[in-house]
Design a protein around this nucleic acid. Structure first.
Lengths: 155, 155
DNA sequence: TGGGGTAGGTCTACTATAGAGACCACCACC
DNA sequence: GGTGGTGGTCTCTATAGTAGACCTACCCCA
């Protein structure tokens, strides 16, 4: 947590709104790699190049459609490259481009955090789900007709 | 890129498939903070506590519905806390919990990367969109009836 | 010689999720 | 006494994601 304060300073420089998204690399990049599959692809490719179906097996709950689309977007953004081998049937290999490689380091920090903290997160989640909401979320509405929303929406 | 290789080693330890997602903190955490808004909220709250409508103004293209939901999920996972002030009308303040604070550091690395590389990403994107696909993506199907997919899907 | 398997995708239909915007109750202010 | 601001919820619609059939072309096996 040493440079968290410098992080704070850095964050405060960015306008987060959509209207300035052209000035906001954060929005720009988060929209790209912050989807459900992109980081998983990068992680899979981090160790070695993968074939299409290898990736499909590695991340076994992605649909082929989303796999194709994610891979294409990643290629479009220069994070991965696509190599076709003229075998029969042709094989296609995906590998990290230098830009994608440069993402590994910052990603590793996030992964490490996830690894450290997912226990705490689960604990907090269990606590939250178990704790009845004594006052309704809607700050006004003091009317007692509305039930406390049953509190156990264990999504 | 100094510890990218250690990152690679780290990544290779994780099973990325859904079937083992209970063993995969990456999936677990990415599904939470890897959505469209969570990181933006964390960033906004990094500098100081915010009221509900302050957050809405800071990230002006989020709907109130998603704002509520994102905030609640973040609270549920122990990343932020929610404080109600008994003013008239009541005010609600959101602030980073220690767990959320600990996320700032790894996030800062990602933000810095985004800042450094979004120029390259845009360049790659323009290059990709400008480059006609000389061979159809579908590796077989050498039939020339299918047009080269018009290549300019400038999404 | 014909059927099944594999490769890398595409296409269509269905479903889950996000977004838009109305609404709520209350109060301060002009 | 109408307007705007408070923190949300609700419903409806649009968009995105999922499941799964399908495609071409080759190989192996019988």
């Amino acid at each position: 947590m040493s440079n968290a304060s410098s992080a704070i300073e850095r964050f405060s420089r960015y306008p987060l709104g959509e209207s300035q998204s052209v000035h906001c690399p954060v929005r720009d990049v988060l929209d790209r790699i912050g989807d459900k599959w992109s980081m998983l692809m990068i992680m899979a490719l981090a160790t070695r190049p993968h074939r299409f179906s290898e990736l499909h097996r590695a991340v076994n709950d992605i649909s082929k459609r989303m796999l194709t689309q994610t891979l294409r977007d990643l290629e479009r953004d220069g994070l991965i490259t696509r190599h076709v081998f003229p075998t029969k049937p042709p094989g296609v290999e995906y590998r990290l481009a230098p830009l994608g490689l440069s993402l590994l380091d910052p990603m590793a920090g996030l992964i490490a955090w996830a690894d450290r903290c997912h226990g705490d997160i689960h604990a907090a989640r269990a606590r939250f789900d178990g704790t009845p909401v004594e006052v309704p979320r809607q700050a006004f509405s003091a009317r007692s007709e509305v039930p406390p929303r049953s509190t156990n929406r264990q999504g």
